[in-house]
């Protein structure tokens, strides 16, 4: 990296920090000056206080949401990548599976909550079901598009060099599709989180969604906002993990600028 680029990047970090600091300062002033009632928007100080007053509850609920989300995501990634790859690579699978999924896709994720509760009751199973279902579609769709849109000359070159159908699937279609699969996984994390928070909020006895719901019942805006911050942080951390994995697997996509 040249020193000029480094300087620009350092400047960007300074700007980021200034932006966040100004936002928090304005928020704090607005509440202190009673421009907004603290009943609706707690002051930044009151939000930070939650870290100390609700430590155990916050830690436990964050942990539960994190574990449930990771489990749901892994289920969705496994099924989504498998289904997307098969549907994208084989026309027969495409004709059979795609219409069903197109139909299901139009149902909002939250609308699955009542059925999930009938099937699995209130608990971890129904949460994983709704969250995994929400994460599934972007993962499936991106993988499908990736496998479907592999450059034809790659596939021809593969067969020309003696590759079997299996080799073409695993050694050509799969690596050629990874550039599409990763954005799908990132969207999957976000959708999975949305589905999970919704069902935790609606029907659950634990997790950040549940904690928010309870705090909301008691008009504790500071706890609600802290929960929102934790949700944002979790989503960000998981997405960054995927970004690192993407860099590791897609190094060959680097472009010289």
């Amino acid at each position: 990296m040249s020193s000029r680029v480094r300087k620009i990047r350092e400047n960007a970090y300074v700007m980021n920090t200034i932006g966040i600091a100004v936002f928090i300062a304005l928020w704090w002033l607005a509440v202190e000056a009673r421009l907004i009632s603290p009943l609706f928007v707690a002051s930044p100080l009151a939000v930070v206080q939650v870290l100390f007053t609700q430590t155990a509850s916050l830690a436990q609920n964050t942990y539960i949401t994190l574990v449930t989300l990771v489990e749901s995501f892994l289920v969705a990634a496994a099924i989504g990548i498998l289904a997307g790859a098969v549907t994208g690579a084989f026309d027969v699978a495409d004709w059979v599976i795609s219409p069903i999924l197109d139909l299901l896709r139009s149902v909002p994720n939250v609308a699955w909550v009542p059925l999930a509760i009938i099937w699995f009751g209130i608990g971890i199973e129904s949460q994983i079901f709704v969250s995994a279902f929400s994460a599934f579609f972007p993962i499936f769709t991106n993988t499908y598009v990736g496998f479907k849109s592999v450059r034809p000359s790659f596939i021809r070159a593969g067969y020309n060099l003696g590759a079997s159908d299996r080799d073409v699937f695993f050694r050509i279609r799969l690596p050629a599709s990874l550039g599409q699969v990763f954005p799908g996984l990132k969207l999957g994390i976000q959708n999975g989180m949305a589905g999970l928070i919704a069902i935790e909020f609606l029907d659950s006895t634990s997790g950040l969604g549940f904690m928010m719901g309870e705090a909301s019942d008691f008009f504790k805006a500071n706890i609600v906002i802290m929960d929102m911050l934790m949700i944002g942080l979790l989503g960000f951390a998981l997405t960054m993990t995927l970004v690192l994995a993407e860099k590791r697997f897609l190094g060959w996509q680097r472009r010289t600028s």
Binding site: S153, R156, N160, G162, A176, W252
Partner: peptide, 17 residues
């Protein structure tokens, strides 16, 4: 197709990965 008749492609078709 068969490797007995190997092809050189206009768009190279090198596997970028």
């Amino acid at each position: 197709p068969s490797p007995e008749r190997a092809m050189v492609f206009q768009d190279y078709a090198l596997f970028p990965w």
